[in-house]
Design a binder for these strands. Structure first.
Lengths: 198, 198, 198, 198
DNA sequence: TATGAATGAGGCTTCATTCAT
DNA sequence: CATGAATGAAGCCTCATTCAT
């Protein structure tokens, strides 16, 4: 990749990050291209040099975030042999990612409302990909009989929901630091998948 | 209440229901007054007889849905003495409500993005009210030592998140009927709040 | 058709006429919706109540003009039995129509540059329809051996071209009145289709 | 002229040719500088080294085409003594030029819509110049009494119109080769200016 | 000479809102 | 009460043009 291409890519990433952050806060439709540009000290028109249109900007941010998330979870699976530890790590990471990258939108919004056609397909596939990694983590715990095979999907959805929902209530000013919070959430969520012992 | 007032109220409810359903599907900003009106076989202009503006329509729907939810959970608390049963019932009801009334929006969207000023205050208060009812259900389980007092809020948020998230993945065509689904979700979610017995 | 529908139709026609006249003078791309609206003492937005978009407005004007032209020529064919007289009348009418209705655009512009898909199909069909009426007039003169059957299309194109071109040079301030002009043009053009007698 | 100047001139001609061809096909306003550049494997910015702006590019192309046409017709007049033959040759040449150089735009578009001020004056003068050459050809036929002196302008306009219109209907795939076509058109058009002999 | 990047004016379009009837 | 019609603010997008390198 040439130097110039690299520079362009970097700029695109900058734009995506800035845009994501604003959209996260105000919502896609309440965010104007003007604002996104101003926030980067550019003009509206310049954005169109990097992205075909507003929709394209949204799409590419989503893809980026989802791909990063998939990368994260994949590497966790690869590096942890103990199933429980792996899941724990995955949950913690997911939560931290949500907080730091402001990626709720990517993870948490009904994609049908924002995408269609090929874009929708891509987004759904990426989400599915991520979900499958979570499923694998859950399946690795099967032998512990914590959950039944046929419930994997359901349990996965409960976990993701509980986590993604965070953005609704999480505040950096809260009594718990983000580390402690992640730890505590992980602890409670793990109860869902741990063996009952009545 | 005069007959006229009654009729007006009924019409308002009709509009709210129709609007809620469309907004739920397409999102607030993707739903036009035109569409809402057409769906009710009226014209755009007529909506303004019943609601001050689009924002007001949204606000009133949210209030209605939240009040109903609060009514639901309050009556559950009143009618169930056994803490575990009460919580179970509340979860089941919440889920069913989500599915039937398409109320995710009311429950699940960041209110700061859609409301401000007095409206925001009202919405936040109603949500808080609902949350407190859930908290009470959780507190009633304290004695069972399933969760610690200071974690009530966190656990409540996990539960609500896991449930509200449903709309993202629930499909009427799924393998489980909505009853079974509610039951199963309840079962797994209860594990979060049940006594650990390591 | 109800009174209201009629009124709407009338308004649409008004808009079309005004728009046609401006577009005729300045060209489609040099004419803004703003201008068209201002010329009718309306606001930009109102135009969109009557026409889906600028393209649609153009399309509908073209259709209207073409349909009128077809009506004109059809009635000429019906009412004139003498072939030469009929053709003469058709030429005169065409010329007068061009001058009065400012319809060059409809008749004279490369439709591929302005329309596509269904719109293009419709326009082409209407133009074809008009052309066929002209052809019929020419064919009626066959027996006079002025032109050969296989040259009908060519001759028709020469005639239409010579006429449509008018807008390039016609000026109301010219030395000839529009009647005389039409008559003279007709006279010369008829020479193309009259029997040679070398 | 220095080598550098020569090279620049050559490049300008290349650009003009490419631009003319695209503009001919899509229209001036539907053609972007981007496209013109891409077609020549350059970038947008480079065009501005050769032409002050888009308008200037259009203007210079028009001038070039018109000057060539004038050159053509002037040499025909010079080289043909027989009036009828000269006119015949001029018509044929005009037609061939239209087809080969895609010069309809230059010949056939209302200049007021595209030019103003000095540019407009220049264009009008060139057109006038060309027209006068045609007029001279027609006047040379006066003695044959085919047309009256005062009708020269009218007849010239009919001829030019009939020819320029070609672009609307001419297709390289048509049944007639371009040579035959030119010949046939010439034959019919000559009828306008030939002596009637009733 | 050439170009990648940035700019900003201008135009199209949407849609909540108003209002006379 | 209802509605057809009109409005205007706001936002998206295009593209000719500029300019530092």
């Amino acid at each position: 990749m040439s130097l110039r291409t690299l520079k362009t890519k970097k700029k695109k990433t900058e734009i995506i990050q800035s845009a994501t952050s604003i959209i996260e806060e105000k919502g896609f439709h309440n965010t104007t291209m003007e604002e996104i540009a101003a926030n980067l000290l550019m003009t509206k028109g310049s954005l169109y040099y990097y992205f075909k249109n507003k929709q394209d900007l949204l799409f590419q941010s989503q893809v980026l975030l989802l791909e990063q998330s998939i990368g994260n979870i994949a590497s966790i699976i690869e590096n942890n042999t103990n199933p429980k530890n792996a899941l724990k790590k995955a949950i913690t990471t997911h939560i931290e990612y949500l907080i730091e990258e402001q990626a709720t939108f990517a993870m948490g919004v009904n994609p049908e409302q924002f995408f269609e056609g090929d874009q929708l397909d891509t987004i759904l596939e990426l989400r599915h990909n991520y979900a499958q990694h979570v499923d694998q983590l859950l399946l690795n715990m099967m032998e512990e009989k914590a959950i039944e095979t046929k419930d994997v999907k359901l349990v996965r959805n409960l976990l993701l929901g509980a986590m993604n929902w965070m953005i609704e209530w999480y505040s950096p000013q809260g009594s718990l630091g983000s580390d402690e919070l992640a730890e505590k959430m992980t602890m409670y969520l793990m109860k869902i998948v741990e063996t009952e012992s009545k």
